[in-house]
Design a protein around this nucleic acid. Structure first.
Lengths: 340, 340
DNA sequence: CTGAAAGCGCTTACAG
DNA sequence: CTGAAAGCGCTTACAG
């Protein structure tokens, strides 16, 4: 039987009904606080009867901890991010935290982020976006940990969790070179992203180490459509490449579609394609994409433990973690002969 | 020049520095409140100097409105949802609201949802999940609007926004029948979901209206893997179907992969496949999936306007909206001759 | 173990 | 237009 109080029911109302003090009610709902079993029982009964739910907002105000983590995301059309979002939110939930989501727009990053911070989030995770170093500094001074997920900004005061994009790029260069490709192309992601910067740098380094230089460079800006156009453009040039390294899987799918469809090429017989991320779709039959796998779960784990470590120590000092990647051989790139 | 106060800076501190009352500071940050230009200027200056940011938590507590919307989601591996998530969150943001995200687990829906409600969200959107009608009732009594997105629970006290899944199912039946198919199969989504229920019912109705009955029924439970297995099973039966209606695109991709890969069939020459949702990937070259398009943007608009309408009137009465769907002809289903 | 009291950082009547 | 004051619903020392 539930007595319906109009509007929110408060701890004071529960206290009255249970004939105890408001403090006793509060303690009953505070794990670890000392309440006599008998008192606790009375409170629980009264709470159930009234449909009481502690007000987390009030708790946050007094305790100074909201148990909310601000999560800034974007690019949700790239399957990599929804999966990160889901797993990260789940990990946070299991520890009693909630995720305040913010979708970042290309421009006004900082300004909107300010609003998010107004909610007194205990920490911030930036996935696929960055914040000005001014804002980052502000957060750290307020002891709000900030971790950049899958971004590595050289001189940011924030923490970073990335995979080894540089090594990944090199891996691809070696792989493609080992299977005899010499006319190599790169389709870049967003020019200002650290992922693109590092993947490209690694690829170029790997090429140069073998005395090869890049034949083509297109810009896909992490967009499906732009990647398709860039592919078309380079394939129609006088010197089409015989292998393309694409900055992420999401664009690689577009590249494959263009190659096999309008261009009527066979992959990998006519041309090899390698992506980056290893999103679930990469393993699907229609693509079977050879790609560099990011250790998504490890990255999430690192993020979470970094976050809680800082939350617990109360010190928001920035650290950085760079996890290893590995190449997943599937069917879109020629397989090197093992001539050792 | 910013004077760094340790910890959070409050309106009282700003007031002191600007030599005005704390109320004046509050008014300066309250749109529409009356403050003399001169006062406002002094406050703004002091605020900037101290790095003041109004505490949204405190504001929520006193105003009784958190400007947070609880969003319950799941199935983020199905591209339909990340896109809904992104657009919905964006729409909310543009109106000054924030999204408190909750990833629902198969079991404990209600229990975890309680925690979300403790945050005093102003409204709740349930995408790909439902809540007990008890909890829904509780929300409505507390005047917290609840809208079920893409779910239609018959006797729920919550509002529903769906597309016309029933009509969609019928559309597919007619389309497939019109192109001469007679050996029809259905691959179901989650058995307890309203989307599956209605899509299937519509399909069966459409079939029966023409005197045809379903040949095969498999269950994919909205999972890529299960859909693949279900397809394999029915194709290996003594009476394989010549057309498959799949409850959503996400599973249809798996069906196509199995058909074309391991089974070596040509689509649509050997067999037709139709999906539901029209996620972006459906239009990609590797699939070119014939499917029923849900009016995603309209559904989001309906959700948002329903929400804000209820928020403004302060009345959380449940309404329901069912938007029209349309069949998108692409390349995975035989095209009917227009014999009129 | 328990209660009275202070206080978290705001908004909002209420006078002036 | 402005300030003093009450109060949102809690947590948390502080006594007892």
């Amino acid at each position: 039987m539930t007595l319906k109080a109009k509007g929110r029911v408060t701890s004071a109302q529960v206290a009255r009904r249970a004939d105890v003090s408001q403090s006793a009610v509060s303690r009953t709902f505070t794990p670890g606080a000392s309440v006599a079993p008998h008192t606790r029982q009375r409170v629980m009964d009264a709470a159930r009867e009234l449909g009481y739910r502690p007000n987390a907002i009030a708790r946050s105000l007094i305790s100074g901890r909201s148990r909310m983590i601000g999560l800034v995301a974007a690019y949700l059309d790239n399957q990599f991010y929804p999966i990160v979002l889901e797993r990260l939110a789940r990990a946070l939930q299991s520890r009693g935290y909630h995720t305040l989501l913010f979708i970042s727009e290309p421009g006004d990053q900082d300004q909107e982020l300010e609003k998010l911070l107004a909610y007194q989030v205990d920490a911030v995770v930036m996935a696929s976006a960055t914040l000005s170093s001014a804002l980052a500094k502000e957060c750290l001074e307020a002891d709000i940990p900030v971790v950049l997920f899958n971004r590595d900004v050289p001189d940011t005061p924030a923490s970073c969790v990335t995979s080894d994009n540089l090594a990944g790029g090199r891996l691809v260069a070696d792989y493609l070179l080992n299977s005899g490709h010499r006319r190599l192309a790169y389709i870049a992601g967003a020019e200002n992203s650290s992922t693109n910067r590092d993947r490209e740098a690694g690829f170029i380094q790997g090429l140069e180490a073998r005395g090869i230089s890049l034949l083509h460079r297109g810009v896909g800006a992490y967009s499906h459509q732009s990647a398709a156009q860039a592919t078309l453009a380079m394939m129609r040039s006088d010197t089409p490449p015989d292998a393309i390294f694409v900055a992420n899987d999401h664009m690689a799918f577009a590249v494959l579609d263009v190659l096999r469809g309008p261009l009527g090429l066979r992959v990998p017989d006519d041309i090899s394609v390698v992506g980056f991320d290893d999103v679930p779709q990469a393993a699907w039959g229609a693509y079977e994409l050879t790609t560099v796998a990011q250790p998504t779960d490890q990255m999430i784990e690192a993020t979470v433990s970094m976050l809680f470590n800082q939350l617990e120590t109360g010190q928001a000092e920035s650290t950085r973690e760079c996890l290893p990647v590995r190449l997943i051989e599937r069917s879109t790139a020629r397989i090197p002969h093992t001539d050792s």
